[in-house]
Simulated scan of single mutants.
Amino acid sequence: MRLSLPRFDRFDVRRWLRVVLLVQVGIAVVMIAGDWLGRYRPQPPSAVPEMTTPVAPGDQRRRFDPARPTPRRDAPALPPGIELPSNYPDRLTFEREEVEGIGSVLLLNGAIAPGDADRLETYLAGLTEGDAPEKAPATIALSSPGGEVSEALAIGRVLREAEKNTVILPGMACMSACPYILASGQERRVSPDGYVGMHQHYYDENLYMPAYFAVEEIQRGQGRTMEYLIDMGVDPGVMIYSLTTPPEDIYILLPEELLDSQLATAMLE
């Protein structure tokens, strides 16, 4: 017995290709419309308090606004002689400052942007070549709302290689990806009047990336971050604070959490 398969002429092939194309376009339109509605439809008021509300044990999650240089309007005053702009710079700036009780520090202020690790490495090399080694700041002060996680890890590698210390000064905030730079210091000190906050790493949605590829990439990124923390002598368990806090919020770490995780080796007096 001979089976006969249906025959398709050129018209049939063209017609079905057109149908398939139209279906794909329709799916894309639906996905884009759903994404747009999800992003721009009115959202109900958040139950999470604003940064203006002081934190307390068990009440440490706050709404996160990366544009604000300080997390609270009533934040403690900055060290004498240091002034921060009303908004964070779009990328890290490097300024040498003198801080009472600490001495010369290199203040890194602003968002963490691609290329900042290379810029910092070049800057530090210039200080070493231009000044006596003892005059190059041994301590890096941090003031940042975060930014690129991979760039923060690269900056941390640069600072650890240079054997620098890190510090969060009174009235300054180190949020999102910034704590990974804090982790790089040989000594890591945080003022009780400073702020260290963590949340989930932000990943742009990609409508064209299959879900399993996106999950795979996220897991790889988390693995690299945990490996980095272990290399820096920090308990990777500190990531529990970031993994359980959505990107629109921030979890402010208490002094005991900073010390227990070794994200801080000492609190600044």
Results as ranks from 00 to 15, higher is better:
M267T: 04
A67I: 04
A264N: 06
M232N: 05
D193N: 15
R15Y: 10
T122M: 02
A266N: 10
D204F: 06
P66R: 09
E121P: 03
P236W: 06
A56V: 08
V167S: 01
S104E: 13
G171Q: 12
E83F: 03
A136C: 03
P145V: 08
E257S: 01
M175T: 00
A125N: 13
K164Q: 13
P247M: 08
L207M: 13
S86W: 01
Q24K: 02
D9V: 09
G115S: 09
I168V: 15
Y202P: 00
P49A: 00
D249W: 10
V167Q: 05
E97L: 12
P54R: 00
V149R: 12
V23N: 03
L182M: 13
D74C: 05
I155C: 02
E129P: 00
T245Q: 09
P210M: 08
I250F: 00
I181C: 08
V167P: 11
G185F: 09
R91T: 07
P133S: 06
V167F: 05
L169S: 02
V215M: 10
E97S: 04
L3R: 12
N87W: 05
K135N: 13
I230M: 09
P179N: 08
I112N: 07
A56Q: 10
V196M: 11
R188I: 09
R73F: 03
Q200R: 15
E256H: 11
R72N: 02
Q219W: 01
M232Q: 14
V105M: 13
S191E: 11
D260G: 01
G115N: 11
L268S: 08
S4K: 06
R2C: 02
E269V: 07
E257D: 09
R39H: 06
P179G: 12
E97R: 15
Y123E: 07
A56F: 04
I32P: 02
P170T: 08
P210Q: 08
E217F: 12
E216Q: 14
V215L: 11
A138D: 14
E248S: 05
I155Q: 02
A152F: 01
E257R: 11
L17Q: 12
I82L: 15
R7L: 14
S242V: 01
A75H: 08
Y123M: 01
D9W: 02
I102M: 13
S191F: 06
R73D: 15
R68M: 12
A132F: 05
A125M: 05
G156M: 06
R96A: 00
N206K: 12
V149P: 00
L243K: 10
V23P: 02
G126M: 10
P236Y: 05
L159F: 11
Q262Y: 06
R73T: 12
P89K: 07
K135Q: 13
Y180M: 12
L263S: 02
Y123I: 01
P71Q: 07
I250D: 07
I168N: 04
D12R: 13
E163L: 11
L108F: 09
D260V: 01
M226K: 14
G115P: 11
L92W: 04
R72K: 09
M1F: 07
G146M: 04
G237H: 08
G126T: 08
Y40C: 03
K164N: 01
V158Q: 05
T53P: 03
